[in-house]
Every structure is written in structure tokens, then in C-alpha cells.
């Protein structure tokens, strides 16, 4: 489990992270979202025990980075956007080297297990320089897992991976969650975050601006509704206006009309809207609650935080 407690990190006069607090529980994937330079990498490096917080503390597996950063490092696996491998080494030597750095008592069986998981068994004795980008990233993940860390920190791990490799990588992360690891995924790939994360923490300009379950964030704000109608635009607009419904948009699509509105009191507003539409002679094909994509929610939250 990761617990970030009121962490601030300054580099000279620049504040990279300001009073950040959030939690990642075991068996949970939390996406740390934010634009470039928002403080995501700083947060992951503080949790990994590489950077000390200027203020506050980060607790990893009940150990404070301030009290014992080395013990924290031993409990974290870190994957960055660049595989960062010693390319003159073979995969076997590379993983053995890091296994020894992490005090793994019997590296052999663990390495065999990992390369099988990653589909790299056939290239175990090949030089890392000959690997493709995707294979290198898999080797980096194997390195991060070699000591079976309870905490996994993934900082833009899928950058430059092709769609097939990204899919494989995603499945791997989800399987690691099933092994009760706490996983922090720092990314600006909202699609990836939406697909696999349980919760989202949004950071902007070093400050955490929103935190919550992925579904909660997507449905945050006024609920929005979409009615699909067989009708003309003018009477529909007039009917909804008369019923006091704040229409966001009306557009023709595939020979039908789509009307969108939002409301804080859906039961009252939708009843009035439907009654007005039926009275105006419109035929209602469907009425649905619109779910925002995480991207829409993210953009709205970032915009709101900057106002």
C-alpha cells in the first residue's frame, strides 16, 4: 500500500509538487493523471525513494521514505517510459544483476518465471541491444518485478508501444493487480487510465485537483441526457423551451434528431421534457443518461482548476 501524506517537493524556487495526499491500496490500480510537468514523475520518484520530499512523507508498505528510503526502494518496482537497459548485457545477466541488487536469494527460478510471463524465454541469452522496443519494455518490466515488489510504479510505461503490445501490457498490469499489488500508473493516456484504473488522481501544476473512482469522475457534475427523437427541430426546440428544459444541443443524425440537456433534478426535468415532447407530436426513440469519457471529465476538471 502507498500513502502519500501532504508531500511537497521543491527544486530551488520551483515547486514541483505541493501538499499532495493520496492513497493506493493493495490490489488497486490508481492512475495519476496530469499534463506534462504536472508533477507525476516527481510523485513517483518520491514514492520510489529516489527523491526525498521537502515536506510531508510517503509511506510504502508501512515504511516511511524519510525513515528508511532503502527499505522503501526494496519494496518498489519502477518502470519508466524509457526501458533504460544496459544493452551490452544479455537478458539473463541483466535480470540476474538486478536480482542480486535487490537481494533475491535464488534468482534463477524467479527469472525463468518472469521471462515466461513476458514471453521472452527464447531470447534469454540474447544481448538486449538486439531487442525490439516492445521487448525492451518487457525486459524493463521484468526488471521491476524481479524482487516481487508489493508496489509497482509505472511512469508512462506504454509510451512508444504499438497497439498490440499496449494491449498485452495492459493485460499484464491487470494480472498484477490480481496479485494484490498496489499499482500507481502515471500517464497522460486517458484511454489507458479509463480501461484499467480503479481510481484516478488528477494533478495539475503540482497540486492534486481531483481524486476519485474512475466511474465517479466520469459521472461527476450535472448529469447529462440524450433523447433520440423522430420529429422536426423547430417544434422540439419550442416544446423543450416552454417546459423550462435547458437544451445544450439539438442535432440531426441518421434521419433522427438528438437533443441533449442536463439537469440537477433529472426526475423532474425529464418528466417535463418527455411530456412536452409528446404534446408537441414528437416520437421518442430513446432517452439515455450520457456518460462522459474520462477525457471529457479530465479536461473539464483541468479547466475548472485553472479558473
Amino acid at each position: 500500500m502507498i500513502e502519500v501524506r501532504d508531500v511537497t517537493r521543491r527544486f530551488g524556487s520551483f515547486t514541483a509538487l505541493s501538499h499532495a495526499s493520496f492513497v493506493v491500496r493493495s490490489g488497486e490500480i490508481v492512475a495519476l493523471l496530469g499534463p506534462n510537468g504536472a508533477g507525476k514523475t516527481t510523485a513517483s520518484r518520491i514514492i520510489a525513494g529516489i527523491l526525498a520530499p521537502t515536506e510531508g512523507d510517503a509511506i510504502v508498505d508501512r515504511i516511511s521514505v524519510r525513515d528508511d528510503a532503502n527499505a522503501v526502494r526494496a519494496r518498489c518496482g519502477l518502470v519508466t517510459d524509457s526501458p533504460a537497459l544496459y544493452e551490452r548485457m544479455s537478458l539473463r545477466s541483466y535480470l540476474t544483476y538486478f536480482a542480486r541488487m535487490y537481494d533475491v536469494p535464488q534468482p534463477g527460478p524467479r527469472i525463468a518465471q518472469l521471462v515466461e510471463l513476458m514471453g521472452l524465454t527464447s531470447v534469454l541469452d540474447r544481448k538486449l541491444a538486439s531487442f525490439s522496443r516492445g521487448m525492451k519494455q518487457k525486459a524493463a518490466i521484468a526488471r521491476a518485478l524481479v524482487h516481487e515488489p508489493p508496489v509497482l510504479l509505472l511512469d508512462e510505461p506504454a509510451t512508444a508501444l504499438d497497439p498490440e503490445m499496449t494491449q498485452t501490457f495492459r493485460e499484464l498490469i491487470v494480472s498484477l493487480r490480481a496479485q494484490h499489488r498496489a499499482i500507481l500508473l502515471c500517464t497522460h493516456d486517458l484511454d489507458e487510465a479509463q480501461r484499467i484504473s480503479d481510481r484516478v488522481v488528477i494533478v495539475d501544476r503540482g497540486r492534486i485537483v481531483r481524486e476519485g473512482a474512475t466511474d465517479e469522475l466520469r459521472s461527476a457534475g450535472r448529469p447529462s441526457f440524450r433523447a433520440e427523437l423522430v420529429a422536426d427541430e423547430a417544434p422540439v426546440r419550442a416544446a423543450l423551451g416552454t417546459a423550462g428544459v435547458t437544451v445544450e444541443s439539438i442535432a440531426a443524425s441518421n434521419g433522427r434528431l438528438e437533443a441533449r440537456w442536463s439537469s440537477d433534478d433529472p426526475a423532474e426535468t425529464n418528466t417535463r421534457a418527455l411530456r412536452a415532447l409528446l404534446d408537441a407530436g414528437a416520437r421518442v426513440v430513446s432517452l439515455n443518461l450520457e456518460t462522459r469519457s474520462l477525457e471529457d471529465a479530465y479536461l473539464a476538471i483541468i479547466k475548472e482548476s485553472r479558473q
Binding site: 532503502n70 526502494r73 533504460a84 535487490y102
Partner: peptide, 10 residues
């Protein structure tokens, strides 16, 4: 950038 994994090790 191979320093990062090294610095992340115990």
C-alpha cells in the same frame, strides 16, 4: 537514462 533503475534499487 540507465541511472534511474540503478538509483531506484536498494
Amino acid at each position: 537514462q540507465t541511472l534511474v533503475p540503478l538509483l531506484a534499487a536498494p
